[in-house]
Each structure stands twice: as structure tokens, then as C-alpha cells.
Design a binder for these strands. Structure first.
Lengths: 212, 212
DNA sequence: CGATCCCTTGACTTTTATCAATAAACGTGG
DNA sequence: CCACGTTTATTGATAAAAGTCAAGGGATCG
């Protein structure tokens, strides 16, 4: 069961946009970024992938993105054909497969709201909240959590520039909402404050409900 | 086979964010918008849905969005439980189901790039190209196509304001790339020009390929 | 310990949003 | 079918937010 893993060093690519999508990968350890590049070089990061998550679930013939290691990464590689056959054969696996894709879609939708309608400060706060939760921290916790990616990665994920991200991180530190411990570790100091800044949807259903 | 359809009039909601997601809908005729609202009232449109497309494929317990009719819409309603059972029972249907979800995810990813990294003009041009293609028009065609949604809908979909959308539509008209025929119909006059403005990724793989 | 890379901060510019005033399209009823 | 009222869109002037350019400061890694 414990299959061998491959190592991808920080900064190296696991797959390139345009490569034949013959494999599916499970991240065993570390963090990766999923990028897409515009013709003139602008970069968008579609998502970050952490240990336990899967890359390549929904690809067609070719990968539509480049996947690069942020830290040293350990991955398990599976032949797509074998993977798909296994999923197809097992109803439980099938359900899990669909659930994973749906989760990815849900995350993408939240990101569209963030990119389309939130201010720079709200974007950074939302991102920090998401990272905090991913680390398994409670919304009231003040424990530290990692931010393995660079400011540039954050900027390309949040649709901002590195300078804007940096300024907002500084501002949040100054106002005591977070406390930076080096560049890649944050201690939440006031998670409620972060949450308030994030402007996250608590669905004001009543407000919208005018017509039947 | 030809089940009865329900009618949703322009401006009415088919489902509300927060409603129990007990049904799946197929749009038979017309166009809808899928919206999410932030607590302070800001609105994001996640996608537009046209005839032949399905709403509610990936929802959990509750709908995470509000679906409103842009034009008069005819929908076929299916009980989710029946729908899921049918999909689960038929391998071909299962594949189609997964393919549809993947398509939605692909669209969401392209939208993330648009919202995160494209200028206002590029966003509008990309949108017009997409609408042109959806209408079945060739990239060299100069036929007219419909834009059923309002400028506000476009703005909320593209992460812009109504004024910016309007200004850019005017600019594209002035420069002869499109020709407006009323508010809701566009004649492409120079699809290549639109395409060039759209800054769409033609994956410059070679450029990026530095490291092994 | 030194070199590099990444990040931070400041000054200034650009883009897009906001506010406000028309103007054009649409729908309704006469 | 036309006139009117309403809604939606356009345009202009101004403001705000974020981007760009540039200089320095801190981490981090051999």
C-alpha cells in the first residue's frame, strides 16, 4: 500500500501547462502552487495544494496548468488510466472522487467572489483566515501557522501586486490583528478581527428576499 | 420523456442562496444568472446559464447561490434524489455528470485568471469572445449575437462597475471592433481584434520552460 | 560571513470607482 | 401606434485604490 514517492524540490515543476495529462498526483508532503501564465507573462495562481490533496483530477488530454513546488514536496504518482479504472469500479471511491471535484469547484467559486468583489485588504484577510483554518486552527485560536509561499505567490493568487500584499501585511501587523514571526509564519492575534475584515459571506438571505 | 417545464419570469429567482438544495434544474429556454451576495450587498455573478445547461449539480445541503432569470426562462425540475440515483445507475450518465462538473470547473479557472490578472478592457473583450463562441459563431464571423444580460450583470460578472463596462463597450464600438445594435445585440466587426484584446492564454510553454 | 533573494517602504502614476447629469431604450396604456 | 414614464445606459468630472518605479533592509543559505 505504501507506494514509493517522488521528490520535487522547491521551485521545480511537477507538470507543465501543455504536458500530456497521463498521471494523477497525490501530495504526500509539502506545498505546491498551480499556475497559469498569460501570453505576455502575467501569472495567475489558481490554487495552492497541500499534503493530502490531489492534482490532475479533472484534466483532459493536457494539463491546463503548471504545478510547481513551493517547499520540497513528496508526491505519489498514479497512472491516470489505472486511477480512473479504480474509481470507476468502486462506488465509494466514485463518490469520493466527485466530492473532491465539487470541493475544488466550491473553492474556485469563493475565489471568484474574492477576486471580483473584494478589496485588497479583504483579500489578504480572507486568505489568512483560509490558511489559518487549513492549519486546523479554531477561529478564536492565537496559535501560529505557516505561510510557506512567497509574497509574490500570494499576490498572484489574490490578484494583487507584491507591494500591495506587503503593505497590507504590515498594516495588519501594525494594527495588531496578526503578528509576523519571520516571513513565513504568522501568529493570529485577533482572529475575529481578521474575520471581520475578510467580509466573508454570511448569506444575508433575509435582506435579498424581496420577491416571492 | 418530454416532461413539463416551469416558467420563471425575467427578474424572478428560481432558487435562493440558503434554500434546501432538493432539486436539480435543466434550463430549457432562456438565460439565468448565478449570483452570490456579500454581507454588505456587493454582488458577484459566478456564471451565466443558458438553454441546455444544468443548475445545482454540485450543491450540498443548501444552495450556495441565488439563481435569477435574465429573460423569461423555461426549466425542467428534477428531484435531486431521483437524479442522483439515475446518474449512479448508468455508467454513461456518470461520465457525462463528471464531465459537466469538470467543464464548470474549467470555466471557473478561466474566470479566476480573468478576474485576477486581466485589465478591464481585456475582461470585456474576453467576455464578448466567449459569448460569440457560445452563439456558435466562428472567430472570423461577423454575424450578430445576443447579450441578454444588463450592463450591471456584465459588471458583476467581470468584477467591474457598470460605468467601466459601458465606457469600454463604447470604446470598442468607436474603434470599430464591435458594432452595437441596441443594448442587447452585438455585431462582431473584427473578431480577430477582439481576440487580440482578450489576451487569452495561448500557453507560451516554451517561454516558461527554464528549469528541467 | 557574505551574497543573494525576498521583502518592505516611500513617492508618484495609472486605472478604475464614484458621483452626477443626461440620454437612450423599453414597456405600458391611451 | 404613439406618448409618457421608468428603467437602463452613457458620458464627464473627480476621487480613491492599487500599481509602478526605486531605494534600502532583512532573511536565508551556502
Amino acid at each position: 500500500m505504501t507506494q514509493k514517492t517522488e521528490t520535487v524540490h522547491a521551485g521545480e515543476a511537477l507538470v507543465w501547462q501543455g504536458d500530456a495529462a497521463d498521471d494523477v498526483f497525490e501530495i504526500v508532503e509539502g506545498a505546491m502552487r498551480i499556475c497559469r501564465i498569460l501570453p505576455d507573462g502575467r501569472r495567475a495562481i489558481l490554487r495552492f495544494v497541500f499534503a493530502g490533496e490531489v492534482i490532475g483530477l479533472t484534466e483532459g488530454e493536457e494539463f491546463s496548468f503548471t504545478a510547481e513546488a513551493i517547499t520540497t514536496v513528496a508526491v505519489r504518482r498514479m497512472r491516470r488510466s489505472r486511477f480512473e479504472a479504480a474509481v470507476d469500479a468502486d462506488p465509494a471511491l466514485r463518490r469520493e472522487h466527485v466530492a473532491l471535484i465539487c470541493q475544488e469547484l466550491t473553492a474556485a467559486q469563493e475565489q471568484m467572489v474574492l477576486l471580483g468583489r473584494k478589496s485588497a485588504e479583504e483579500r489578504v484577510a480572507s486568505f489568512l483566515v483560509a490558511m489559518m483554518r487549513r492549519a486546523g486552527l479554531d477561529d478564536r485560536s492565537c496559535a501560529a501557522f505557516d505561510l510557506p509561499m512567497t509574497r509574490l505567490d500570494m499576490a498572484d493568487y489574490l490578484g494583487l501586486t507584491i507591494e500591495t500584499v506587503s503593505r497590507i501585511m504590515s498594516k495588519l501587523s501594525r494594527s495588531g490583528v496578526i503578528a509576523a514571526q519571520g516571513r513565513h509564519q504568522i501568529r493570529g492575534r485577533n482572529a475575529a478581527g481578521l474575520l471581520a475584515i475578510a467580509a466573508d459571506e454570511s448569506a444575508p438571505r433575509a435582506l435579498e428576499r424581496r420577491a416571492a
